[in-house]
Design a protein around this nucleic acid. Structure first.
Length: 299
DNA sequence: AAGTCGTGGTG
DNA sequence: TCACCAAGACT
């Protein structure tokens, strides 16, 4: 276990300034309401994985109203979860949410589990989501580390522009050392640092003029050196399986009845072999089901 | 452990 | 314009 030490005076200032900033500037997201249920918070966390929060809200409202509890979602066909996922992206998350709801019914009396370990065991829940749900839904101050928190800490504490591609032991140690010792403050801290990263300490064009900890930011004091890491690999898109899979699913979502194999070629007419491969992948993933008349969302 | 998995806003 | 990136998980 590596340890990281942050100067007590610096730490005190970080806590006070960032928590104060958060109390003034936090967006009033519906899942931050004092009356939000653990299920509502759980849904918001999975929906927010790799997805801008602004796009989550309408889908989240739709899901909450349609499936207000784990029981409700567990009773629905998996395909309905995929259908109502719409264009939020990474539709396997919808499937895993459905599996998670069934796991909650099977193993947790239909409740969102409270321990980090039980949360982590759910499908679609990794380190980040388990810690976030523990902290935000249950008031258990686990160390939350998301892309925002990584960026804020690497700048404010380490003085670098951007974190490494994958999470390091050093970052875990810094994040743990940065947590306030008070339980309530620690939970607020998790949300506050994330919010600061999302609204001010952004990846592309940080609004340092609006930053509450500008004077003690190590990156600022170092003169804002540019990222020294290797160039990031851009995500290819045009003509990839991802694009074709997306089109296939969009067609199936927008069609109530099964779709014939021939009709699926219309999503990528130049290459039926690619369509075959993507279809096989989607079936393998459980997102699509072969039926007599062709293909449909899973029952 | 690097690759894969959607989608849309934006600087 | 277009490459980058967004409350990651999984293999």
């Amino acid at each position: 276990m590596s340890e990281a030490r942050i100067d007590d005076r610096v730490l005190g200032t970080l806590h006070a300034r960032i928590l104060d900033w958060f109390s003034e500037h936090a967006r009033d997201l519906p899942w931050r309401s004092a009356t939000a249920s653990a299920w509502e918070i759980f849904l918001s966390e999975v929906m927010s994985q790799q997805t801008p929060v602004a796009r989550v809200e309408p889908i989240w409202r739709e899901w909450i109203s349609r499936w207000p509890t784990p029981f409700a979602l567990a009773d629905a066909p998996a395909g309905e979860a995929v259908r109502h996922w719409g264009r939020l992206g990474y539709p396997r998350r919808a499937l895993r949410l459905h599996e998670a709801a069934r796991a909650m019914v099977a193993r947790h009396d239909g409740q969102v589990p409270t321990s980090y370990e039980d949360l982590l065991a759910l499908p679609g829940v990794g380190e980040y989501t388990a810690a976030a749900v523990a902290s935000f839904a249950h008031g258990d101050p686990q160390v939350v580390i998301d892309t925002n928190i990584r960026r804020v800490l690497v700048r404010a504490v380490e003085g670098r522009a951007l974190p490494a591609p994958s999470l390091t032991a050093r970052e875990r140690a810094v994040a743990a050392a940065a947590m306030p010792s008070d339980r309530e403050q620690a939970n607020a801290w998790n949300a506050a640092v994330m919010e600061l990263g999302a609204l001010v300490c952004t990846a592309r064009a940080p609004r340092c003029g609006d930053c509450p900890v500008l004077e003690i930011c190590a990156w600022q004091r170092a003169g804002c050196p540019p990222d020294d890491g290797p160039a990031r690999r851009g995500q290819a898109w045009h003509g990839t399986d991802r694009q074709v899979r997306g089109r296939i699913l969009q067609l199936l979502r927008d069609t109530p009845s099964p779709v014939a194999r021939d009709h699926l070629d219309t999503v990528w007419p130049q290459d039926p072999v690619k369509v075959d491969r993507c279809l096989a992948g989607l079936v393998e993933d459980g997102l699509v089901e072969p039926v007599e008349a062709g293909y449909s969302l899973p029952a």
